[in-house]
């Protein structure tokens, strides 16, 4: 159970910590510059083309951003000895993890959504080139781009949950960095590569490929973007991962990561019998 008052205390502490940390602002600035820069230099002429332009960079940037924000979220308290102190207060590990996660998530979502929304301002409304007209049959709309922003926020929430779990498991900052980099590589590329090899080796058949694609957070996210942002306006047939399975997959990654983080946050439950 989450205790509201103690959750708010931890949540506000996380937000204040991020707000006062210079490197976090530099990170936000970098993410903003890259995202908006891609929008500016790609000179896209529609919201859906911009989505497709941003999709692959975002698949890499979100794991990198959440790794930087999340890998020390719990580890830093443990390294300072504050986790030991926190366990002597009436604060459950679930409430602690919820507060840490939501505080970091609030900041992450602010950076991600503001960057994507500003990038949307770079869309050119001049007449698109003929090849663009040939690729899209439907009416381009900011609604589709808004869907992309929402799905990207969900993707960021899932990967951040993974990073918070990682932060509860590692025992040193160095191992935390290595583990975070491994998670970024595995999430961004690794699982997709395994699926590609599975398809190439004939282990994964074409009919069940959309189901397998939903297993990876990145593929699930990409599948949902294809299904709800690109497919409605694309002239060519887009065959994404199963939308339902993708949504369930992302939900499971999120919930299981946070549950495991809650279990692992206090390494040992108190055994002292207090009357």
């Amino acid at each position: 159970m989450i205790d509201t008052d103690r959750f708010v205390a931890v949540f506000e502490r996380e937000l204040a910590t991020l707000r006062r940390t210079r490197s976090i602002w530099l990170l936000a600035l970098g993410y903003f510059a890259i995202t908006v820069g891609i929008g500016v230099f790609s000179d896209t002429s529609g919201y859906v083309p911009l989505t497709l332009t941003l999709l692959t960079p975002v698949e890499l940037l979100i794991p990198a951003l959440t790794a930087a924000v999340g890998y020390r979220s719990v580890l830093a308290d443990r390294e300072r000895g504050e986790t030991s102190i926190l366990q002597t207060y009436p604060l459950g590990p679930g409430t602690y993890i919820a507060g840490v996660y939501c505080g970091r998530l609030a900041w992450t979502l602010l950076v991600v959504t503001v960057s994507l929304l500003v990038a949307a301002l770079t869309v050119s409304f001049a007449s698109p080139p003929a090849d663009v007209l040939a690729e899209y049959t439907g009416i381009d709309s900011p609604v589709y781009y808004f869907r992309f922003v929402v799905l990207t926020a969900v993707f960021a929430a899932v990967i951040l949950a993974l990073m918070v779990l990682l932060s509860t498991l590692v025992r040193s900052a160095r191992r935390g960095i290595v583990a975070a980099l491994m998670v970024v590589v595995v999430v961004a590329i690794g699982i997709d590569l395994v699926i590609v090899f599975g398809v190439a080796g004939g282990v994964i058949g074409g009919n069940i490929l959309p189901w397998y694609l939903a297993l990876s957070p990145v593929s699930a996210y990409r599948g949902l973007v294809m299904a709800y942002v690109v497919s409605p306006v694309a002239a060519t047939v887009v065959r994404p991962a199963s939308p339902l399975m993708s949504a369930i997959s992302l939900l499971l990654w999120l919930v299981v990561s946070l549950l495991l983080a809650g279990i692992a946050a206090w390494s040992t439950p108190s055994h002292v019998m207090s009357e």
């Binding site: 030991s84 002597t88 040992t268 055994h271 002292v272 019998m273 207090s274």
Partner: peptide
């Protein structure tokens, strides 16, 4: 303090 569980024995507070 309750930060580590003993292999055996009791702590009563």
């Amino acid at each position: 303090t309750g930060l580590r569980r003993p292999d055996s024995g009791e702590i009563a507070l």
